[in-house]
Design a protein around this nucleic acid. Sequence first.
DNA 1: CAAAGTTACTAAACACTGTTTAGTAGAGAG
DNA 2: CTCTCTACTAAACAGTGTTTAGTAACTTTG
Lengths: 203, 203
Amino acid sequence: MSIAERKEREKAEMRSLILSAAHHIFKEKGYDGLNIRSIAERIEYSPATIYLYYKDKNEIFFALQYEAAAAKRDHLIPAASIEDPWQRLIEFGRLYVDFGLKHPDWYDLLFLTRAPMEHIENQECWTLGMATHSFLVETVQACVDARYFKTTDTQTIAYTLWCHVHGLVSLFVRERMRMYPPEQREVLAKKSFAMVVKMAESL
Amino acid sequence: MSIAERKEREKAEMRSLILSAAHHIFKEKGYDGLNIRSIAERIEYSPATIYLYYKDKNEIFFALQYEAAAAKRDHLIPAASIEDPWQRLIEFGRLYVDFGLKHPDWYDLLFLTRAPMEHIENQECWTLGMATHSFLVETVQACVDARYFKTTDTQTIAYTLWCHVHGLVSLFVRERMRMYPPEQREVLAKKSFAMVVKMAESL
DNA sequence: CAAAGTTACTAAACACTGTTTAGTAGAGAG
DNA sequence: CTCTCTACTAAACAGTGTTTAGTAACTTTG
C-alpha cells in the first residue's frame, strides 16, 4: 500500500502547493489579480491541472478563506488566557480590531468579499468563525455571570459588540473613512473602540 | 440651434434609458447578473452603443451607486424634521438600519461591493454620502450642545454610532448572521439597535 | 519482461466577460 | 443632389473560468 500512500501524499502536497501559490498571488495582487492561469503559471503547471485538485475557483476561495479565519483565530488567541472576563472581552475586541486594521485583505476575504454563500455553513472556515463567535458569547456570558453588566441579555450584548467592531473594521477596509485624514483614521478607530468599552460598562 | 438641442436631449434620454435598464437588471439578477450585453439586449441596441454614452462599466456602476445613495437619502429624510436632536438621532439610526434591511442590494452596492475607489471622492454619490454623514455629525453636535451627552467628542460619538449601524446592516446583508434562525435576525438587529440607544444615553 | 490498464498532465477549445475597431446606413448641411 | 458627419453595429480582441480529448508516463497484470 506504499504506492497508494505516496500518491495520497503527493495529492495533498499538490493541493497545498496550489493553495500556497494562490495565497502569494492574493497577497501580492489582491483578489482581483488572483486567477487560475496566474496560479498555474506560478506553480509551472497548466491551468487544467488545477482542476484535478480543486473542483473550481470557489473551492480555492474557500481554502483561502479558511487560512484567513485561522490567521484571525491565531491573532485572537492571546485574549483567551486572560482570567477576568471583562478584561478578556476588552482584549478580545482590541485584538479583533487590530487584526482587521493590520490585515485588511484577510478581513475583506472573510467578511466582505462576495462569494457563493449557499453552503458556507459546511465549510471549515465557517466552523472556525463559529468558534470565534462562541468564544465571544461565552466571554459575554461570563461577564453577565460575574455581574459586570446590569443587563442579562447575553446574545444581544455579544451581537451589539460584534456589530461595532465589524462595522469599524469594515468602514476602514472598504475605504469609507476617506472624509477623515489618513493619519487620523486609526486614531479615530481606537478612540471609538475605547468609547464602546466605556459604553459597555454602563450596560 | 433646435437640432443640436434635440440631439442633446436624445443623448440624455439614451443615458437614462441605459441606466434604467441597468437598474432593472440589477434588481432582478443582482450585481453579478449585470453586464454590458444584458443591458444592450434589454434596450435593443448593440453592446458597442453603450460605450457611446458611458465611458465604461464603472461609470454605469457609479451612476447606479448614485441612485442607491439617493434612495438612502430619501429614506432618511423624515428624520430631519424632528425637532429634538436626540429623538432625531434615534430616528435617523432607526431609518438607516431600516433602509439596510429593506434594501440589502442597494446597501451592498453603496458600501460592500468592491469597486474602483480611486476617484470616488469626485463622484456624485460620494457627495451624497458625505451629506448624510454631515447630517449625522450635525445631529450629534446638536445633542452635545443640548447636553444630552456628558462626552463632548462629537466626531468619535458620530463615528461610533455609524460603526454600529453599519456593522449591523453589513452582517445582515452579507449573511454573517446564519448562526441565528432567520426569523430571529431582524428581531436581534432591532434589539441591538435599542441597546445602542440605551448605551448612548450613558455617554 | 512485455502488454494492458491507469494515472497525471496538457493543448486547445468553449462560453462568457469588458472593450475596441472598422465600417455602414441614414440624417443634416451646403 | 452631393457631401459630410453622426449614430450605430458586426466582428474582433483580450481576459476570465472551465471542459474535452488526447498523450505520455507510470503501475499492474499475465
